[in-house]
Computed example of a mutant assay.
Amino acid sequence: MEIRFKDYILQTQLPTSWIEGKKCVINTINPHSYCIAEEDPEFKEALITSDILIPDGVGIVLASRLLYGIKIPKVAGYDLHLHYLDLLNQTRAKVFYLGSTDSTLEKIRKRLIKEYPFIQFYSYSPPFKPVLDDQDNSRIHQIINEVKPKVLFVGMTAPKQEKWVYQNKDILDVNIICSIGAVFDFYSGNIKRPSKFWIDLGLEWLPRLLHEPRRLWKRTFISSPKFLLYLISSKFSAPS
């Protein structure tokens, strides 16, 4: 199987102001999500059709340089989150967090009050199930559209969150939709994000693996080697 990053649109420049009347879906991609997407057509379609797809993984940065000679910076979902919190605070706008537990959402609310006091906070913890049914989705649509937030952060883990956004984006009355997964736990303090030292080394994944081996072992020991094989195969294969 060949890595076909030309199928994807990788961008690192995020909007610095709202585009009224236009909806923007932002997703992230890393080696693990790439491997999943190559075996999950709906997830792949959700990523490919993103308005902005940002490289949240040093493997993606490396692949871009080796395959196309293009230098791009890694942009973590956490950085995406902070970017929009700054913008929301400056404009006294509404934000909606969809996902996680009520207790986690409450921790996020309390932190926002201290750090971004002008943001109008709203949230909803959906039922915890593999796939939300029509009744669940109808309830979510109603709650979000009554608020009409500028930014909707979705944290239901990949690929569930990206596929949910892909299926429901046209119904939602929002400007920006961001699937940011683990950021809910990082920002709430449930999980401590690795220090800048590890991030700058491109090894943010290592402390996370040591802290959550049961959850992250597969992406480290299966997806990462598989992605490397994809990359090597693509690099040395004859052009089509």
Rank of each mutant, 00 (worst) to 15 (best):
I52S: 00
V58P: 00
I26K: 08
F43G: 02
L47M: 10
E39I: 12
V61H: 06
A46P: 02
R65K: 13
D56Y: 12
G59E: 09
L66P: 00
I52Q: 01
A37D: 08
S33L: 09
K44C: 07
P41I: 07
I60D: 01
L47I: 04
I52M: 12
L62D: 15
E38Q: 15
S33G: 00
H32I: 11
I60Y: 06
C35T: 09
E38M: 13
S33E: 08
E42L: 15
E42M: 15
Y34L: 12
I54S: 13
I29S: 03
I60S: 04
S50T: 01
D51G: 05
E42S: 15
D56C: 08
K44A: 11
I54G: 07
E38S: 11
D56N: 08
F43K: 05
L67M: 10
P31L: 14
R65Q: 13
D51F: 06
T49C: 05
I36T: 11
H32L: 12
Y34H: 10
S50P: 04
L53Q: 03
G59I: 01
E45D: 10
T28P: 01
P55R: 12
N27H: 15
S64I: 09
G57T: 04
I52N: 03
I36E: 14
L66C: 02
S50A: 12
L66E: 13
T49I: 02
A46C: 03
D56H: 12
S50K: 05
P41H: 14
R65S: 11
D40Y: 15
I54F: 13
I29V: 05
N27M: 09
D51V: 04
L62M: 11
D40G: 15
C35F: 11
I48C: 06
N30V: 02
P31I: 08
G59P: 00
V61C: 09
Y34D: 07
A37Y: 08
I60N: 04
V61Q: 09
P41K: 15
E45R: 09
P31Y: 09
A46F: 03
S50Y: 01
L47E: 10
F43P: 00
T28A: 13
E45M: 05
N27Y: 10
E38N: 11
E39P: 13
I26S: 03
V58G: 02
V58C: 02
S33N: 03
A46M: 06
I36Q: 14
A46V: 07
E42G: 14
P31A: 15
L53E: 00
L47F: 07
P55N: 10
A63P: 00
E38F: 00
L53R: 05
I54Y: 14
S64L: 14
L53K: 07
S64V: 07
I26Y: 02
L62P: 00
A63T: 01
N30P: 00
D56P: 01
I29P: 00
H32G: 01
S64E: 14
A37S: 14
E45T: 10
A46Y: 08
T49D: 12
P31Q: 10
E45K: 08
I52H: 11
I60H: 05
A37E: 09
H32S: 12
N30R: 02
G59C: 06
S64K: 14
I48G: 06
E42P: 12
L53A: 05
I36N: 08
R65D: 15
I29Q: 06
D51A: 09
P55W: 11
I54W: 11
F43L: 04
F43N: 03
S50V: 02
D51W: 06
L47P: 03
T28D: 02
I36K: 13
L67E: 04
I36S: 11
G57V: 08
